[in-house]
Amino acid sequence: MIRIGNLTVFPDRREIFVDGAPVELSYRAMDVLLILIEANGALVTKDELMDRVWPTTIVEDNNLYVHICTIRKVMDEHRKLLVCAPGRGYRLLRPIQPTRAASTFVARTDSKQAVQ
């Protein structure tokens, strides 16, 4: 299970949920999303996406763009996490969850219990 904003993606089952409700994505759009998730925030070139999603078919760039738009629509307010690097490719940012600060243990010496 992978959480991206309000999306929950189950890659092994090819299922996606938005705020807990199931959402249908086309087979190709799901492929694009899974490739971007697999890249873990790294840039995926348009050529790599095209080669992996349409390995035996020649398609225009606009086919990829249509699926990117579909993914962004599903992401709704989190659509800015799917970033375009013009002329290069796409990157799916994963929001950094704030981590809790480590507890600091401060040893206190009580003058009455001090060991001499």
Rank of each mutant, 00 (worst) to 15 (best):
M1D: 06
M1H: 07
M1R: 07
I2K: 09
I2S: 02
I4S: 02
T8E: 09
V9D: 02
V9L: 05
V9S: 03
V9A: 04
F10L: 11
F10K: 06
F10P: 03
P11I: 06
D12Q: 12
D12T: 14
D12I: 15
D12C: 07
D12N: 11
R14L: 04
E15Q: 15
I16A: 01
G20I: 06
P22K: 14
P22E: 07
V23C: 07
L25I: 04
S26Q: 11
S26M: 04
Y27Q: 13
R28Y: 04
R28V: 08
A29H: 01
D31C: 11
I35A: 02
L36V: 07
I37E: 01
I37F: 02
N40M: 10
N40Q: 14
G41L: 02
G41W: 02
A42L: 12
T45E: 06
K46F: 04
L49Q: 00
M50I: 15
M50Q: 10
M50N: 08
V53I: 10
T56M: 08
T57F: 03
T57D: 07
I58E: 04
I58R: 05
I58T: 15
I58Q: 08
E60T: 15
E60H: 11
N62Q: 12
Y65P: 00
H67A: 00
H67C: 00
C69R: 12
C69Q: 09
V74T: 13
D76A: 14
E77I: 15
E77N: 09
H78L: 03
L82M: 02
L82T: 01
L82R: 00
V83Y: 01
G87V: 11
L93S: 03
L93E: 14
L93A: 10
R94I: 14
R94Q: 11
P95L: 09
I96W: 04
T99F: 06
A101R: 13
A102D: 09
A102M: 08
V106F: 05
A107L: 12
T109Y: 05
T109V: 15
D110Y: 08
S111M: 10
K112A: 14
Q113K: 11
Q113W: 11
Q113T: 14
A114P: 01
V115L: 05
